[in-house]
């Protein structure tokens, strides 16, 4: 059963879809917003019958293992933190970037394949009561470095 395969074709279509917004930036923000809404509902459904997370870092561990595996089909490679509300998650083969040939040639195309995922992560964190700012950096496709800043209430 491969509904993930169909999801991937669908996400690639969204990334390339010309109907979202007048320009590249608007397209990116619309994709991020779609991901955000999905991330909230998906994470709520995933965590319905899970015990509450004790520590903030436990939420981030859940994000870069269970949530990552569901949405991106592997666990992230590493989770680092400065213990002041900033976390960095690295994935050496980020799933949505594998749609692009590796190396530096398509770096300019990377943002539209990362907008929806960033929204997913922000939405998942929101569902777990953490307001966050999610940004991503790509220096070499398909590796991606996500920076998550937890916004203090």
């Amino acid at each position: 059963m491969e509904s993930y395969t169909l999801f991937e074709y669908f996400h690639n279509e969204l990334a390339n879809w010309k109907g979202f917004g007048a320009d590249k930036d608007e397209h990116i923000s619309i994709l991020e917003d779609i991901g955000y809404k999905v991330g909230i509902s998906l994470c709520e459904n995933m965590c319905k019958d899970r015990p509450r997370f004790k520590e903030e870092v436990d939420v981030l561990r859940f994000l870069c293992r269970d949530f990552w595996e569901l949405c991106f089909r592997r666990s992230a490679n590493s989770l680092k933190t400065d213990n002041a509300g900033t976390y960095v998650i690295q994935d050496s083969e980020f799933r949505t970037l594998t749609a692009l040939s590796s190396g530096k040639q398509f770096l300019t195309d990377a943002p539209k394949f990362l907008a929806y995922p960033c929204g997913l992560l922000r939405g998942a964190l929101f569902a777990l009561t953490l307001n966050a700012h999610v940004t991503v950096e790509v220096t070499q496709i398909p590796a991606a470095k996500f920076k998550i800043d937890i916004l203090r209430k």
């Binding site: 993930y4 169909l6 999801f7 109907g19 619309i30 779609i34 999905v38 293992r65």
Partner: peptide
């Protein structure tokens, strides 16, 4: 954190697709 059994994951994969599609339809509307 308990690993979800295969069927648990398949259900969730279906939700990932269904929720994404729903958000896209809402956007196009």
């Amino acid at each position: 954190m308990a690993r979800q059994g295969r069927s648990g994951e398949t259900k969730m994969e279906g939700e990932l697709l269904a929720l994404t599609y729903g958000a896209v339809v809402a956007r196009v509307l």
